[in-house]
Design a protein around this nucleic acid. Sequence first.
RNA 1: GCGCCCGUAGCUCAAUUGGAUAGAGCACUUGACUACGAAUCAAGAGGUUAGAGGUUCAAGUCCUCUCGGGCGCACCA
Length: 555
Amino acid sequence: MNILQQTEEKIKEEIVQAVINANLASPDQLPVIVLQQPKDKAHGDFATNIAMQLAKIAKKAPVKIAEEIIEQFDQTKASITKMEIAGPGFINFFMDNQYLTNLVPTILKQGENYGASNAGSGQKIQVEFVSANPTGDLHLGHARGAAVGDSLCNVLAKAGYDVSREYYINDAGNQIVKLATSMEARYMQALGKDWDMPEDGYHGKDIIALGQELVEKYKDEWVNKSEQERLEFFREYGLKYETKKLETDLNQFRVPFDNWFSETSLYDDGKIQPTLDTLKEKGFIYEEDGATWFRSTDFGDDKDRVLIKQDGSYTYLTPDIAYHKNKLDRGFETLINIWGADHHGYIPRMQAAIQALGYQPDTLEVEIIQMVNLFQDGEKVKMSKRTGKAVTLRELMEEVGIDAMRYFFNMRSSDSHLDFDMDLARSKSNENPVFYVQYAHARISTMISQAEQKGLAGDDYDPSLLTAEKEEELLKKLGEFAKVIEDSASKRLPHRITQYIFDLASSLHSFYNAEKVLDENDLERTKARIALMKAVKITIANGLALIGVSAPESM
RNA sequence: GCGCCCGUAGCUCAAUUGGAUAGAGCACUUGACUACGAAUCAAGAGGUUAGAGGUUCAAGUCCUCUCGGGCGCACCA
């Protein structure tokens, strides 16, 4: 538990004690004590709404209740200097800011671990994300999912969850047949033959390149082989090629996966039939019109879903259920799937499957990432899957840079559509928010190295000298970090981190312009301030790391 | 037609998941570098939170309806 939380807990305990002493409520009537940090510092360091919550129970006006609580409250125990009643019945607490200055040595000691907590108590969570078909390049929408998913994993890990990142490779369905026939057409075309692309084939540039690669390697060797032989070979070749490319691109985007799970392996390992058997035993399966159905309507789905088609093959859902069963069999307590908004209609049947397998509905959480619109030169860039005209992750990384992309994708809440402004992301100007945060980090780095050169830094600093208004502001912000991470993790909102570090950078810049850090005539204050700067630097770097953005020493 | 998401300052978005006077960035106006990095700061202006009801001590947030935008609604994956 960090300093801030300890302080909060102490205040909460005293509130409970005061409420009971004032005879306002019995312990079993007592609501959960909410202690918040007011936005407006005129409202103190902490505030509680307990008096309003007790209005009904105690049958008194909130303001009257607040008065009675204050009367009974032992200020010294919680190191509070002042208490006030405000507004409709808030109780505001003003603290002696010594509790904040202790933060600096703590942060310096914890270093890159600062912000970590055990809030997740080691809960085993698996996050499945991206999982794009291995049939082409990743595009803009995948990039957002990758950035958000990876950052969420980082945040969960920092908050004490045991996280595993997984990519589900859809290497078993019809789309792989289409991949092979698309490659076949590109191969033939590369040999100068007149060969049409298959209907609904993959028109991406990467498949054209793949066709050329096949010609370079094998010349016209595959022209005279049987179609079956040729397609079989292309299928395997294409899968390996595409999967490798996905992994390379994602690694470059700083999105590593712990496990790449092949759909085909579910067939090879015989995982599908047992899953069907389980569902059958539990009575959620029936036959109709020559197909096998899953009664997902038992769990609120719109209609029942086919598992085995009339032709005897599985639908996409069937191995996917087996896959989710497999995840749960591996001991994950919570599954998080990150899907594009175009798949949200799939949620009810998957949730139904989880419940049919005997798990609680909240075992599976699906986070929906809304669409991304790309803007260039002030105009919306049109994308088309059919013609393969789409901006790829690779192109974006080259053109706008990874830092800007990671930052932009984590700037907004996922359930809001995102307008991605290429020109802004690419610009190296003050309009670009990613530089704002990185600049704060670089600025601090310079200060620290100058201080060290001039002998103005030292371990024997006195943090209680940090009493300037801007210093208190900074300290308070620093203290929030662990809580922001915990919230961000438990609510699955990684963009909270981005907002936090932006605010922190803002406080830093504001402090920097108000106070002089390096002052040869005031060595003690300078030492304390350099220690504070080190603490801010650590916190910004840790925050940037969570969203996958670099923290430069200079820029 | 049904379902999910969204609608907040001129633009792009936040808002501690029900708390106090709805906040940032950009753009706009005005000021601050012989200075530890001006990629910065300080100040100003900008709002009927799409609209109408309801619940609550308290609603941008929850419920109902209307309007507008996006995305889904396969024995495709």
